[in-house]
């Protein structure tokens, strides 16, 4: 990185798309979308496995009896809102307003943490009250692999964003870190994309039977 890239950007300055102003930024942008294409396939294989094995519940509870919609609804709203708050963060990034961007990223992190907390609570209930564990049936294995993998993505996304926020807290916004924030927000939206299919395919379709 050059000194030019590390120069702090302030509101009112150009460029208006700091995430793509350098070659490195453009490459990060393209590379990340390539990665998202791969992630799509990865999650598809987990969804496919789940769909094929969801009725193999041995003597455990079937999906309709196991799932409750209240908690899932709250989790869905939280994650959807966190997607909007990261849009706000990028909006402020485009106006080169670093403090506001950090604030909205921080709100995104809080929402993500509450989502993760609820998911842990949900899994705890399944294991301790319903006897639905990773090894109890093929349904259990497929369920925890799919939903757990998504949860792991949330956890990783949170670590990533927090690291960015702490590392750059005193640097402010520059051409070197703008692409990093942009790409992290793309990752966060992708997590929400996967969740839309999880709540539809796993929980809602599970309830319908």
């Amino acid at each position: 990185m050059s000194a030019e890239e590390l120069k702090q950007l302030k509101p009112g300055q150009s460029p208006h798309e700091p995430e793509k102003a350098t070659l490195e930024g453009k490459n990060k942008f393209l590379g990340f979308w390539f990665f998202l294409g791969g992630e799509t396939v990865l999650f598809a294989s987990l969804f496919g496995t789940y769909l094929a094995l969801k009725d193999s519940n041995l003597d455990g509870k079937p999906a309709e009896e196991l799932f409750g919609l209240e908690l899932v609804f709250i989790m869905t709203m939280i994650l959807l809102t966190s997607s909007l708050t990261s849009v706000y963060a990028i909006y402020h990034m485009k106006n080169l307003d670093f403090q506001k961007m950090q604030l909205w990223m921080g709100i995104t992190v809080l929402l993500g943490l509450s989502f993760l907390g609820l998911e842990i609570f949900e899994f705890y209930e399944y294991v301790h009250h319903d006897g639905h564990t990773f090894t109890s049936s093929a349904f259990g294995s497929a369920f925890y692999t799919l939903v757990g993998f998504h949860g792991a993505h949330v956890a990783f996304g949170l670590l990533w964003i927090v690291t960015l926020m702490v590392r750059n807290a005193r640097r402010g916004l520059n051409l070197y870190n703008a692409p990093k924030y942009y790409v992290a927000s793309l990752y966060w939206h992708f997590i929400d994309v996967v969740w839309v299919f999880i709540f539809t395919v796993v929980y809602l379709m599970g309830k319908v039977g």
């Binding site: 998202l36 992630e39 396939v41 969804f47 496919g48």
Partner: peptide, 12 residues
């Protein structure tokens, strides 16, 4: 990615 994803799910 979506194309491969659909094939994967269909096959499974």
């Amino acid at each position: 990615g979506v194309f491969v994803a659909i094939l994967t799910i269909l096959a499974m």
